[in-house]
Design a protein around this nucleic acid. Structure first.
Lengths: 195, 195
DNA sequence: ATAAAATCTTGCGCTGGATCAAGATTAATG
DNA sequence: CATTAATCTTGATCCAGCGCAAGATTTTAT
């Protein structure tokens, strides 16, 4: 727990400086939680109550198509980073995504109420969230451009270059879902890449 | 100009209340500009200097693939709404997108310096930007899910339902680019839809 | 450890949608 | 308003990647 909090602070500092004063209030708001693998943390239709900080395990957010057959993985989260359905948490409107653990996970979480209080009490925290949101927007847009423009193979290559470690950590069908390609296509691309 | 500013205020109020005090400082920061059609406002590689508020005309942001042949339209903007490469403006890092006018356009714009000053001076403005960013994130994610999950026809239907007016306002090839489908496919889908 | 469940691989046929091309239509510009 | 340029339509062709399926392998749970 001590260690997790230290990791959190380090992660935050990389986004924006965190004064000791802010940190005093901030650290008190986080509650440690653990989940087994394959646990739904947030379902579509629910409003996200928590912002998570991942200290162990891998999670994924995914979208279920109207016919319930197609699904698309929106993002994977793993330490050290935040997790949670960002847009639902921020706007406090129903989520269109599911968030689930892929492996047994340890996380810190902060409720929306505490989050709001911090926002009001600490201008510096607002600045921090501000910077974070800007980064999130940039990240999503880059990914969107790739999804729109790249072929299956280009997406595959791009992903493997950026996140080679993921290959061993999660079932490939989720990686395929993340890239919007068929698991069989993923398998074939992988076979080709290994030559 | 008076009318444009009124429109801006109205647009802002829909996001978050704007006090008269804030408005005094805010309105002074905007400069009216006009552009001919097919003008590049921001090129990839440049850092976005302005946030625009559109009062006339249509613009689009687009991404050029590495080989310069594929391109994807990220978003269309038209009155009343903001325009500009949001992520580049917010983070002041080079844009990966181009922003161009599709038709002759009239816009108000605010420079990043003025924007920063407002942010520092008016907590309420920070709150406003905050809410706006949250909305942006939500919007992008919804669109991303559609791009990932929908077939050409589903994307076409969804778009036509949400934005039927666009059919007459911009060349269809841009609509096709927005949906990541070929112009010829767009034309065929349109023919089918009209039966 | 062992059974049961999930995942991965691979072949094969098929199709949605891209590509190419050329003529018809519409819009921009001096 | 006439010329030129851009866009739209439509046919014909082609292929990347999907869907299906079945056996091989790995992982999970008991």
């Amino acid at each position: 727990m001590e260690k997790d909090l230290r990791s959190l602070r380090q992660f935050l500092e990389a986004i924006h400086p965190v004064s000791d004063e802010l940190w005093q209030d901030l650290q008190a708001c986080w509650q440690p939680v653990v989940f087994k693998r394959k646990t739904i943390l947030t379902a579509a239709g629910e409003t996200e109550r928590y912002l998570y900080f991942v200290t162990e395990g891998i999670q994924r957010a995914f979208y279920l198509g109207p016919d319930d057959r197609r699904e698309a993985t929106v993002i994977f989260t793993y330490p050290p980073s935040f997790s949670g359905v960002a847009d639902s948490f921020l706007t406090q409107t129903p989520s269109t995504f599911y968030l689930e653990t892929l492996t047994a996970s340890r996380l810190l979480r902060i409720g929306h109420d505490s989050y709001q209080e911090l926002l009001v009490k600490h201008p510096a925290f607002k600045d921090l969230t501000f910077h974070f949101m800007a980064q999130v927007i940039k990240g999503i847009l880059v990914r969107q451009a790739e999804i729109q423009c790249f072929t299956a193979e280009e997406k595959f290559r791009s992903f493997l270059t950026r996140s080679p470690h993921m290959l061993n950590l999660v079932p490939h069908k989720y990686l395929a879902s993340y890239l919007s390609i068929d698991p069989s296509t993923f398998s074939r691309l992988l076979a080709t890449a290994k030559l």
